[in-house]
């Protein structure tokens, strides 16, 4: 069954890595619904948040392939329920609509959106929320004439109290240390 999954990949900040990762999707003909690159809570580590709509098996496979990339520290996949997430949308409408009646202002308030900028020609509205919510507002604005519309990629955070990555990093450090000591043991034996 296809459903939405959020893939989070933690990586070194390496030129070309994004390309390597998107190739994994392209090759399997999986569409990326949205993608966001950002810093993470851990210094020097970037985070990619990728939303796809596909079968679990495929998502698991893709997550492993992402993690296989040399510069990727760890990749996770989550269902929407497992994460808190938001997207941000910006709408540009003619300012005239705002002047003619208070309907538009009410609509903005109803949707918990806010106005970023008003000029004599246009007004820019901002709304944060899930896709359905930002879409709802868009549908409401259509009658006023939407001059421009844009929705960001998703940003998401897990519901668990600690970042899974910190846990992973601890384990990995122990592992790398073990590898190192085994190696020095081997070389000293020689």
């Amino acid at each position: 069954m296809k459903q939405e999954y959020i893939i989070s990949a933690y990586s070194e900040n390496h030129i070309g890595l994004l390309n390597r990762i998107t190739i994994i999707f392209t090759r399997r003909k999986v569409n990326i619904e949205s993608i966001t690159a950002s810093v993470s809570a851990i210094e020097g580590i970037s985070k990619l948040t990728i939303v796809v709509n596909d079968e679990k098996e495929k998502v698991v496979n893709i997550t492993k392939q992402i993690e296989k990339q040399v510069e990727v520290l760890k990749a996770f996949y989550h269902t929407n329920e497992e994460m808190i997430f938001q997207e941000i949308a910006l709408y540009k409408v003619p300012t005239q609509a705002l002047m003619e009646s208070d309907k538009l202002e009410k609509l903005i308030r109803q949707h918990n959106a806010r106005i970023l900028e008003i000029t004599p020609e246009y007004t820019v509205i901002e709304k944060t929320g899930h896709k359905e919510e930002t879409q709802d507002l868009f549908n409401g604005l259509v009658e006023y004439g939407v001059l421009q519309f844009i929705r960001s990629g998703r940003v998401a955070i897990t519901r668990s109290p600690i970042e899974k990555l910190s846990e992973f990093l601890r384990e990995r450090d122990a592992l790398l240390e073990k590898m190192e000591s085994r190696r020095s043991l081997r070389t000293s034996k020689k």
Binding site: V70, E71, R172, L175, L176, M179, E180
Partner: peptide, 12 residues
């Protein structure tokens, strides 16, 4: 090179 922090060649 003996290690890369984002790359674990072999798991225990």
């Amino acid at each position: 090179c003996h290690k890369i922090r984002s790359y674990i060649p072999e798991f225990p």
